[in-house]
């Protein structure tokens, strides 16, 4: 299910003294099954962009097309959008409110045309996916759980709707390294199973490791839209946007500068390790 933006602009407080342009004529297209990273400075319009994709904001001008249909046209069924596009904010645990975990995870399913059994099955699936034992957790209050558990419950609440496009706004910013890895593994697995992922992150390592393609926004304009390996090759250009490359890319570059023959397209730790192994073995042979 492709999502396409056609010359989308968005202005906050249009027509008042506080008018500010958040997005300026952004055009892009994301195909089904892609894993796209979205980066840029604070206030560059990333959050505005994903909220436009999720239909939470209406563009001041331009179109947002989901599967070829304009989501802001009058006749468009919003339920369809909510079912297909899931959005996870930075602190999703803030959205919990129900008396039991089971009811909270089922909240997003309320308006979907599913039978009670299907809904129950999805809740179980989502909770197990996020690492809970369904029977143990279902009747507990989501509010009394620990911070990490509450976050996983909130994620389960978004997963339960089985979105075909999952948008994540800074999902790992406040997680510890372990939680970060677990979370990204979960997202990566969903992507391998066909879910389109759009992720906002400051973390270059995560983008290098998981994203196929990177979009760079600067002052409301889309200035880079390219595969991650290509984007991370141009360190100098990224610097002008106050962005860094991933650690493995950085290390590979330093080693290259020392005269070691490394391929140009290393962005992941795995690639770096393979490169080093090849070097060591090459050295041994010599």
């Amino acid at each position: 299910m492709p999502i396409t933006l056609e010359r989308v602009s968005y202005t906050y407080a249009a027509g008042t003294a506080f008018e500010t342009a958040a997005l300026d004529s952004v055009s892009l297209s994301i195909a089904g099954g892609e894993f796209v990273g979205l980066v840029g400075h604070t206030g560059c319009g990333k959050s505005t962009l994903v909220q436009l994709m999720a239909g939470l904001l209406r563009p001041t001008s331009g179109k947002v097309l989901l599967d070829g249909k304009d989501i802001n046209l009058k006749g468009y069924r919003r339920e369809e959008l909510r079912e297909k596009v899931g959005l996870l904010f930075q602190f999703p645990e803030c959205q919990l409110f129900e008396t039991t975990v089971e009811r909270d995870v089922a909240f997003g399913l309320k308006h979907l045309p599913l039978s009670a059994e299907e809904k129950a099955e999805r809740v179980r699936w989502a909770l197990e996916r996020t690492g809970f034992s369904f029977e143990q957790i279902r009747h507990q209050s989501p509010l009394g759980l620990s911070g990490g558990e509450r976050r996983r419950i909130a994620i389960a609440g978004v997963l339960a709707t089985r979105p075909q496009i999952l948008i994540l706004d800074e999902p790992v910013a406040s997680l510890d390294p372990m939680g970060r890895r677990d979370f990204m593994e979960l997202i990566s697995r969903l992507n391998r199973e066909g879910t389109t992922i759009v992720i906002i992150s400051h973390n270059a390592d995560i983008l290098g490791e998981y994203a196929h393609r990177v979009l760079v926004l600067e002052q409301g304009k889309l200035c880079i839209d390219a595969p991650v390996k290509e984007v991370f090759q141009d360190t100098e250009r990224l610097k002008t946007y106050h962005l860094a490359v991933s650690q493995p890319r950085h290390i590979a570059r330093l080693l290259q500068q020392k005269g070691l023959p490394f391929p140009q397209d290393i962005v992941r730790y795995g690639d770096l390790l393979t490169g080093i192994k090849a070097l060591v073995e090459g050295g041994r042979e010599r």
């Binding site: 909510r82 803030c94 959205q95 997003g108 308006h111 978004v158 709707t161």
Partner: peptide, 16 residues
């Protein structure tokens, strides 16, 4: 800000 985020998060989950 938080109210706005919560409103958006719940809208994304299907609240009307």
């Amino acid at each position: 800000e938080e109210t706005e985020t919560i409103r958006k998060a719940q809208t994304a989950r299907g609240a009307k």
